[in-house]
Design a protein around this nucleic acid. Sequence first.
DNA 1: ATGCATATTTAAGCTTACTTAAATCATAAA
DNA 2: TTTATGATTTAAGTAAGCTTAAATATGCAT
Lengths: 224, 224
Amino acid sequence: MENSTSIATENFIKAVFKHEQTEGADTKSGTIARELGITHAAATDMARKLASKNLVDYQKYKELKLTDSGRELAVHVLRRHRLWETFLNRVLGLDMHQVHTEAEVLEHATSDFLLDQIDAYLGYPKFDPHGDPIPDKNGMVDDSLAQITVSNAEVNIAYQVCRLSGSDEEFFDFCSSNQLVLGSTIIIRKHYPKNKMTEVEIGDVKLLLNSDFADAILVEAKLN
Amino acid sequence: MENSTSIATENFIKAVFKHEQTEGADTKSGTIARELGITHAAATDMARKLASKNLVDYQKYKELKLTDSGRELAVHVLRRHRLWETFLNRVLGLDMHQVHTEAEVLEHATSDFLLDQIDAYLGYPKFDPHGDPIPDKNGMVDDSLAQITVSNAEVNIAYQVCRLSGSDEEFFDFCSSNQLVLGSTIIIRKHYPKNKMTEVEIGDVKLLLNSDFADAILVEAKLN
DNA sequence: ATGCATATTTAAGCTTACTTAAATCATAAA
DNA sequence: TTTATGATTTAAGTAAGCTTAAATATGCAT
């Protein structure tokens, strides 16, 4: 029994999974081909091979669908990806883009053992720095709202302040002087990665936060 | 110009380098084949291919020798390996064997950028947990003696205590009560990895050290 | 110096993951 | 309903990295 999944296989399955999640339809070999930067022919080939390994359901000219074991694999790869992202962000301080690029490679070179160590070291995080949920060992996903730091939040989206995790008095002083309380609506206007500053708006107050503060303010998406 | 080096290539070059360093002679394709667990035929094939890429000097039936760019590649891979070992040991607390297994895979999945980040995070270490020197960015190696922790030291070799890096008073109390001073000769008798204990001998004193203490005592090989 | 055991290489073939080019299918427009 | 346009598949071929089996070279013992 060939149980080893190659990098090409993992990336293909991941692409199908991502497409199923976001678009929900039209997951044809051509779409995946474009996503992976390979020819249609190669994608068709791969689809047939993976169908024979029971990772996807595939019939000529029809849409691709992951089987249960295909989805299991996809979630497993996603877990590796997002744990690496979290680790590289929290430990080495890499930014969102760097974190993604590196995780894209590391996700295929990580044993279950190492992954467990990383998971434990981070305290079994439920969300990665993008705010995307990290599947647990059994592939289960927390469907509650993600809490992410202001430094990692997206620009021009209304968030709600849900945690102030600073340690010193100055930080809390600063917060209460600037309408920064639990429940406040906050909009991130611009990240200045070079200078590690983030520009935000709370009501009519505009603030330029340094990275210590931007890391200490946790927000979640606002329910509308 | 194909400048991408595959995993197979990196491992082959690494094996040649290792053999050149340790045995110094008889680096024939068969030796490398045995090392890598592939057939002689495959090794011969690879030798010819890498010769055409100017990574090894190779003539039929003769010994393999790395070219300058081959050696450069080998040292670069070694650097990735040893930095990962150091990182996994220091940050995640993996033991010698685990560290090696994981680094064997990660070394092929690490960008120069990420490697620099790891290097900086660790404070540009000169030696890995085995005591092996870590080549710097330019491939330069520190040829002074390695300082390793007692917890990582080899069994039944005479070392010399060269640093006591404990932080609390109890530790230094303990040291001075047990002939543990700079310059003392120490022999590691046994590691108990399950219990994180190390049994050592200093003169006629036998000690069972816990991991905190075994990590705080640095030793180097004794010049005879 | 000769022969033989061992090491090394060649030859042929396999799998994975692609490519290009040609053939075929699907479907929306006329 | 027919058609043409674009998507998809098939066919043939390539490169890497292996395998087994056969051929050949090496070098040591005699």
